[in-house]
Amino acid sequence: MTDATLSPGKAVAAVKRPTGASIGPRWSNALFVAPYMVFYVVLLVYPLFKGIWMSMLESDMFDDTSKFAGLANYYRLFNDKIFIGTVWNTVLFVLMTVPVFVAIGLLLALALNRSDRTSATLRAIFFGTSVLSVTIVTIIWKMMYMPGNGAIASLMRLLGLEPIAFITTASLALPAVAITTIWWIIGLPMMLFLAALQQIPGELYEAAALDNASRWRSFWSITLPSIRRTMLVVVIYEIVAQFQLFGQAQLLTQGGPNNASRPIVLFIYEQGFRSWNLGYAAAASEILFLIMAVAALAQFFASRKRVEE
């Protein structure tokens, strides 16, 4: 019988067992993860580093003679009032939407966490909007927001109120985009919370009921701790997703009025595809990447600390 002693941190050659099986590293196993790794490297790692490199070039969309510019694009970005405005708009948009996704998503999940037919129908309805394309969603909401014949304007007139010009008023344009986005995407956090709620053992609630715990007490002491990890997933996913706001703003407001609803990704798009200034667009992309990474990591560490406590 072969005796193999494994010590941590020490590479050990594969040792053959009489049965044909072996312990220790077998590099052929890498083949199982190779397909994923190839796509990961080609579609994520390479573009990431290529993007960083491009951000340091003075590069034009159709010019093959890019020249190294160091940090000039970043310097230009930090002195660009429009870009600074887009950073502020995007952060504001994330602050407007992510807490709402968590609060309303959880409320809907709690309300629809039943097995009756009405709940199933309502779940399908609330999730249904998520399958629509951004084009359809913005057409629907344009028809809602139009101050002339829009649905909201008609309702306001019915109530004797003056219609509000949501998408052409600087202070209302970004909230209008946020409302559209919440209506569109709320189904996903709801479903994630529903899945988490259905994992909580019923015995916990039965024990709480035997102890005469109120519904609020049960929610606070059983439900919330049990779905904390899902909440973390929802928050991080939504932070990452909402920082990438693009289609709704481009189609509803085109970033206006007065740049009040222009997000970072629209700025990147305009610099890249309209001004053909790829280096500058790449630099803005790297800034967005950093902001998203910091925001998501901050949330992750803060939540992990709370879970450990």
């Binding site: 052409t168 600087a170 009025p257 007065n258 009040a260």
Partner: peptide, 8 residues
Amino acid sequence: GSAMRGDK
């Protein structure tokens, strides 16, 4: 547009 609409 910003000036015409009074935003600036």
